Simulated assay, not measured.
Amino acid sequence: MKKILTSTFLILTTFFVFAQEETPSQFRLGLTAHPTFAWIKSDIQGIKSNGLRAGFSYGVLGDFYFAENYAFSTALKLTTINGQTESELVANAGEQQTYKLQYIEIPLKLKLSTNESNGLKFFGEFGLGNGFNVRAKQDIKSANNSTIESDKDIYSETAFYRASLVIGAGAEFKVGEKTSIVGGLSLDNGFTDIKSGSGTLKSSYLGLNLAVFF
């Protein structure tokens, strides 16, 4: 896993440096830090979704413009995707399982922007989310909310790769010659199983996206 993450980081770094050297006016770097609100969809009989759980994401953003209002957008982020399920089985009815999962995310998106007016422009984006699991913990509570297990390590039971479709929109406001503040909302809809073994659990989240481009 370390080799995969190291190789990915080196490839992205090389790509960013090359883009800056070759087309500095068409490439931008930024920083992001924002909350996520996630849930888990269960296809396992006797296990149901049980509400939203908050998480957090932060990292580096990169936009590669190939036309005035069109760009390939990517990032290198550390994202916490939490979620909760509840058992409906007779043996442990009401038992709650809270998943606390952490991923290195490298999304690949197409970004479409409007023309700038008075320093403000709007954008929409769509693409593929790629997540690589680096940590997986689980809390288990009984129906009366007493703790059965806390921070149980479930990394070996968790799928390493998580794929998703990402759609989002937002606004960008220019505050300097090269500096912009960005705010928006995105839906990251997971379509692969987040665990190994039989049955399927899929995680999705809403991101309240905040970023600064330099």
Rank of each mutant, 00 (worst) to 15 (best):
S42I: 04
E125V: 01
N82Y: 04
R135V: 03
F27D: 07
A143D: 10
K77C: 08
A75R: 01
L52C: 03
Y58W: 06
G127A: 06
Y65Q: 05
G46V: 00
L120I: 01
I140N: 12
F126N: 05
T114C: 10
A19V: 05
S57Q: 10
N82I: 08
V134L: 03
T98E: 11
L10K: 08
G62C: 06
E95Y: 15
L108T: 03
G94A: 13
S42C: 00
Y103M: 09
F37E: 08
E88R: 10
I4L: 13
L29G: 09
N130Y: 08
T23Q: 13
G46Y: 01
A19C: 14
G131D: 08
A38F: 01
P107V: 00
S113M: 02
I106A: 05
G131Y: 05
A91T: 07
A38I: 00
G46R: 00
E22I: 06
E21W: 09
F9N: 10
L89M: 06
T32W: 00
A75N: 08
I44E: 12
Q26K: 11
Q96S: 13
E22W: 14
G127E: 07
F66W: 06
Y58G: 04
A38Y: 00
I104D: 02
T8I: 15
G124T: 01
L128M: 05
F16L: 12
N130K: 04
Y58F: 08
I104E: 05
S117K: 15
Y99N: 10
I44A: 11
F15V: 04
E88L: 14
T6A: 13
G30F: 00
T8Q: 10
N82P: 04
I44H: 04
L10C: 08
N130W: 04
K121H: 13
S146F: 14
K111T: 02
G59A: 00
T32A: 12
R53D: 11
S42R: 02
R28Q: 15
T147M: 15
L31V: 06
S73D: 15
S42W: 02
